[in-house]
Amino acid sequence: EHQTACDSYWTSVHPEYWTKRHVWEWLQFCCDQYKLDTNCISFCNFNISGLQLCSMTQEEFVEAAGLCGEYLYFILQNIRTQG
């Protein structure tokens, strides 16, 4: 039997508790949902936990993801305040 992915999907966990996999799933979702250019995102810069992600500043997001960084930063802040 296969496990259902939704059990541990990033949407069901507060961002501060995300694993590295959750972070990448979220990035992929943002790219799909908001039509962000994946080429401007250095995924290696996001090989981090949710706690590390949440402690990043807006400037660090821009450094890590170029033009997309600002969008990603605000998307994350939205999730954190709603969560």
Rank of each mutant, 00 (worst) to 15 (best):
E1M: 04
E1A: 05
H2M: 08
H2F: 14
H2T: 11
Q3L: 11
Q3P: 09
T4F: 11
T4V: 11
T4P: 10
T4M: 12
A5E: 13
A5I: 10
A5H: 12
A5F: 09
A5N: 14
C6R: 09
C6S: 07
D7N: 09
D7G: 14
S8Y: 15
Y9W: 15
T11A: 10
V13F: 05
V13D: 05
V13Q: 05
V13W: 01
V13Y: 06
V13N: 04
H14F: 07
H14R: 13
H14P: 14
H14A: 11
H14G: 09
H14S: 11
H14Y: 08
H14Q: 15
H14E: 12
P15K: 00
P15E: 03
P15H: 00
E16D: 06
E16V: 10
E16M: 10
E16Q: 13
E16W: 07
E16C: 08
Y17G: 13
Y17R: 14
Y17E: 15
Y17K: 13
W18E: 02
W18D: 05
W18M: 00
W18V: 00
T19M: 00
T19I: 01
T19W: 00
T19D: 07
T19L: 00
T19N: 11
T19G: 04
T19F: 03
K20M: 05
R21M: 07
R21Y: 08
R21E: 15
R21G: 09
R21A: 12
R21L: 09
H22K: 08
H22W: 05
H22D: 14
H22S: 04
V23M: 00
W24F: 15
W24M: 14
W24A: 10
W24E: 10
W24N: 14
E25Q: 12
E25M: 04
E25I: 04
W26G: 01
W26Y: 06
W26E: 01
W26S: 00
W26A: 00
L27R: 01
L27D: 00
Q28F: 00
Q28C: 07
Q28V: 08
Q28R: 11
Q28N: 14
F29H: 09
F29R: 06
F29K: 07
F29S: 13
F29M: 06
C30W: 04
C30L: 05
C30K: 03
C31T: 12
C31Q: 01
C31M: 09
C31A: 06
D32H: 14
D32M: 08
D32S: 08
D32Q: 15
D32G: 07
D32Y: 09
Q33C: 10
Q33V: 07
Q33A: 11
Q33L: 04
Y34L: 06
Y34G: 07
Y34N: 07
Y34R: 06
Y34H: 08
Y34M: 06
Y34E: 07
K35H: 08
K35A: 12
K35Y: 04
K35R: 13
L36A: 00
D37M: 01
D37R: 06
D37E: 08
D37H: 00
D37F: 05
D37L: 00
T38Q: 12
T38L: 12
T38A: 11
T38W: 11
N39V: 07
N39G: 10
C40T: 12
C40A: 12
C40Q: 15
C40F: 07
C40G: 13
C40E: 14
I41P: 00
I41A: 04
I41F: 11
S42G: 08
S42F: 04
F43T: 09
F43Q: 14
F43W: 14
F43G: 08
F43A: 09
F43V: 08
C44K: 11
C44V: 12
N45M: 12
N45I: 06
N45Y: 09
N45Q: 11
N45F: 09
F46G: 05
F46R: 03
F46C: 01
N47I: 02
N47Y: 09
N47C: 09
N47P: 05
N47Q: 11
N47T: 05
N47F: 00
I48P: 04
I48F: 08
I48L: 08
S49A: 07
S49L: 01
S49Q: 05
L51P: 10
L51F: 11
L51I: 11
Q52R: 10
Q52N: 06
Q52M: 05
Q52D: 08
Q52C: 03
Q52I: 07
L53F: 03
L53Y: 00
L53D: 05
L53S: 01
L53Q: 04
C54L: 10
C54W: 01
C54N: 00
C54M: 05
C54P: 03
S55L: 07
S55G: 10
S55D: 11
S55P: 02
S55F: 05
S55N: 12
S55W: 02
S55C: 06
M56E: 03
M56S: 05
M56G: 03
M56F: 05
T57I: 01
T57C: 04
T57R: 07
T57M: 05
T57L: 04
T57H: 02
T57D: 06
T57G: 07
Q58V: 12
Q58G: 02
Q58R: 13
Q58E: 15
E59I: 10
E59Q: 10
E59M: 07
E59D: 08
E59T: 09
E59V: 07
E60C: 04
E60I: 00
E60S: 07
E60T: 01
E60F: 03
F61Y: 01
F61M: 08
F61D: 00
F61H: 00
F61V: 02
F61R: 03
F61W: 10
F61K: 03
V62G: 07
V62K: 13
V62N: 08
V62W: 05
V62T: 11
V62A: 07
V62E: 09
E63I: 04
E63L: 06
E63C: 05
E63M: 08
E63Q: 09
E63F: 02
E63G: 09
A64L: 07
A64H: 09
A64S: 13
A64Q: 07
A65I: 04
A65F: 15
A65Q: 03
A65W: 11
A65H: 05
A65S: 09
A65K: 01
A65C: 12
G66E: 01
G66S: 04
G66Q: 02
G66D: 04
L67S: 15
L67K: 15
L67D: 15
L67M: 12
L67W: 12
C68K: 12
C68N: 13
C68F: 09
C68P: 13
C68V: 11
C68Y: 12
C68E: 14
G69H: 03
G69E: 01
G69T: 00
G69Q: 05
G69V: 02
G69C: 00
E70R: 11
E70W: 04
E70N: 10
E70G: 08
E70Y: 07
E70M: 07
E70T: 10
Y71N: 15
Y71L: 13
Y71Q: 15
Y71K: 15
Y71W: 09
L72H: 03
L72N: 00
L72F: 03
L72M: 05
L72P: 04
L72Y: 00
L72I: 03
Y73S: 00
Y73T: 00
Y73I: 01
Y73R: 01
Y73H: 08
F74D: 15
F74H: 14
F74M: 15
F74C: 14
F74S: 15
F74K: 15
I75V: 12
I75Q: 15
L76K: 00
L76E: 01
L76P: 03
L76N: 01
Q77L: 08
Q77G: 07
Q77R: 10
Q77N: 10
Q77D: 06
Q77H: 11
N78W: 05
N78Q: 13
I79H: 10
I79K: 07
I79N: 07
R80Q: 08
R80T: 06
R80H: 04
R80V: 07
R80A: 05
R80F: 01
R80W: 02
T81A: 11
T81D: 10
T81H: 12
Q82Y: 10
Q82K: 11
Q82I: 06
Q82E: 13
Q82G: 12
Q82C: 12
G83A: 13
G83N: 10
G83I: 09
